[in-house]
C-alpha cells in the first residue's frame, strides 16, 4: 500500500532515535556469510567497526523503506558515523556506514525489550565486531538508541 511522503523532519535530525539493532556479516567470511560480499560501500568487513543504514542512497531507501513503518530517517552515506547504545546496559559503539540495511519494512512493528525498556523497528545492523562490543552475538536483536557519532 502506498503512503504519502511525510513532511515531518526525519526523527534522527531531532535527536537520538530509538529502534532495534541486529548484526550481519560481510566481507570475507565462512558459512552462509561467504557469499555476502563487501556491501554497498565496497568496504564492509565483519571484523571492522561498521554498520548498515537504511537510507544510504535512493536505491537503498527503495529497498529498506522504513517510512512504511512510520519512521523517517536522514540520508547518510558511506563513512558517516553513528553511535549505537544498547538499552540493555548502556554500552555503546561508534561505527561508520558500510552497507545498506536492514530491510526495515519486512519487520514493521517488531518490538524488542529489556525488561520494561523497549524499542520498535529495525533501524541499524552492526557488524559482528561492533555488535559484540555492546551485547553478546547470541542475543541476535536488541533495543538501542542511535545518535550521530
Amino acid at each position: 500500500m502506498a503512503r504519502n511522503p511525510s513532511t515531518d523532519p526525519p526523527a534522527d535530525l531531532l535527536g537520538p532515535v530509538q529502534g532495534e539493532v541486529s548484526w550481519f556479516c560481510c566481507g570475507t567470511a565462512w558459512g552462509p556469510c561467504s557469499s555476502t560480499g563487501k556491501g554497498a560501500c565496497g568496504t564492509c568487513n565483519s571484523g571492522s567497526l561498521q554498520h548498515a543504514w537504511p537510507n544510504a542512497s535512493d536505491a537503498c531507501w527503495s529497498i529498506t523503506r522504513p517510512d512504511r513503518c512510520g519512521v523517517n530517517l536522514s540520508r547518510r552515506t558511506c563513512g558517516f558515523r553513528h553511535r549505537t547504545t544498547s538499552l540493555c546496559g548502556g554500552a555503546s559503539v561508534v561505527t561508520t556506514i558500510a552497507d545498506c540495511g536492514p530491510q526495515t519494512d519486512l519487520f514493521c512493528g517488531e518490538r524488542s525489550c529489556c525488561g520494561s525498556t523497549c524499542a520498535n523497528n529495525r533501524l541499524i545492523d552492526l557488524t559482528p565486531a561492533a555488535y559484540s562490543r555492546i551485547a553478546s552475538l547470541s542475543t541476535g536483536l536488541r533495543p538501542c538508541e542511535i545518535a550521530t557519532g
Partner: peptide
C-alpha cells in the same frame, strides 16, 4: 552476557577500522 557487556566494552577505537580485540575465522 548483558552484565559483562554493560560494564566493559573496551576503549574507544577509530570507527570503520578493524577491531584488534575481535577475531573471525
Amino acid at each position: 552476557p548483558e552484565a559483562a557487556f554493560a560494564t566493559t566494552s573496551g576503549p574507544e577505537l577509530e570507527p570503520g577500522t578493524p577491531d584488534p580485540d575481535f577475531v573471525e575465522g
